[in-house]
Amino acid sequence: MPKRDKQAVGQRFLNAFREAGAVEVAPDILLPADTLLDLYGEDIRARAYTSSDPLRGEMMLRPDFTVPVVQMHMAGGAEPARYCYLGEVFRKQDPGDERPANPRDNEYLQAGFELFAHDPQADAEVFALFHRLLAPWGLRAVTGDMGLVMDAVRALPLSEARRDALLHHVWRPKRFGRLLARFSRPAARRNVAQSAAPWAGLRTRAEMERRMARLAADQDAAPLDPAWIARLDRLFAISAAMPKALGELTDLSREWPDLAPAIRRIDDRAGMLADLGVAPETVLFDASHGHRTMEYYDGFTFSFLADGRTGWPPIATGGRYDALTAVLGRGGRAIPAVGGIIRPGLVAELETA
Rank of each mutant, 00 (worst) to 15 (best):
D105N: 13
N106H: 11
E107D: 09
E107A: 09
E107N: 14
E107Y: 03
Y108L: 04
L109C: 06
L109T: 10
A111C: 05
G112R: 01
F113C: 03
F113R: 13
F113H: 08
L115W: 14
L115S: 09
F116M: 06
F116S: 11
A117R: 10
H118G: 07
D119M: 00
A122Y: 14
A122G: 05
A124S: 11
V126N: 07
V126Q: 09
F127W: 04
F127E: 14
A128W: 05
A128P: 15
R132Q: 14
L134F: 01
A135I: 07
A135Y: 10
P136N: 10
P136W: 13
W137Q: 04
G138C: 02
G138V: 01
G138W: 02
L139R: 11
A141W: 03
V142L: 07
G144K: 09
D145C: 00
D145L: 02
D145T: 01
D145P: 01
D145M: 02
M146P: 05
G147P: 10
L148Y: 12
L148M: 09
M150H: 13
L156C: 06
L158M: 12
S159P: 08
A161V: 11
R163T: 11
A165E: 14
A165N: 11
L166A: 06
H169T: 08
H169F: 03
H169G: 02
V170A: 02
V170M: 02
W171T: 15
R172F: 00
P173H: 03
P173Y: 04
K174R: 15
K174C: 07
R175V: 01
F176R: 01
F176I: 00
G177A: 03
R178K: 15
L179I: 13
L179Q: 12
L180Y: 04
L180F: 00
L180M: 12
A181G: 11
A181Y: 09
S184V: 00
R185D: 14
R185L: 06
R185E: 12
A188D: 15
A188V: 11
R190E: 11
N191E: 06
N191Q: 12
A193C: 04
A197H: 11
A197W: 10
P198E: 03
W199D: 10
A200F: 08
G201H: 08
L202A: 13
R203F: 00
T204Q: 01
T204C: 00
R205W: 02
R205E: 10
E207I: 00
R210S: 10
R211E: 14
A213G: 13
R214P: 03
R214S: 12
R214E: 13
L215V: 15
L215H: 13
L215T: 10
A216W: 03
A217D: 15
A217H: 13
D220Y: 07
A222C: 05
A222D: 15
P223C: 05
L224T: 12
D225L: 00
D225V: 01
P226C: 04
A227D: 14
W228K: 07
W228I: 07
W228C: 05
W228F: 13
W228N: 09
I229H: 07
I229K: 09
A230G: 12
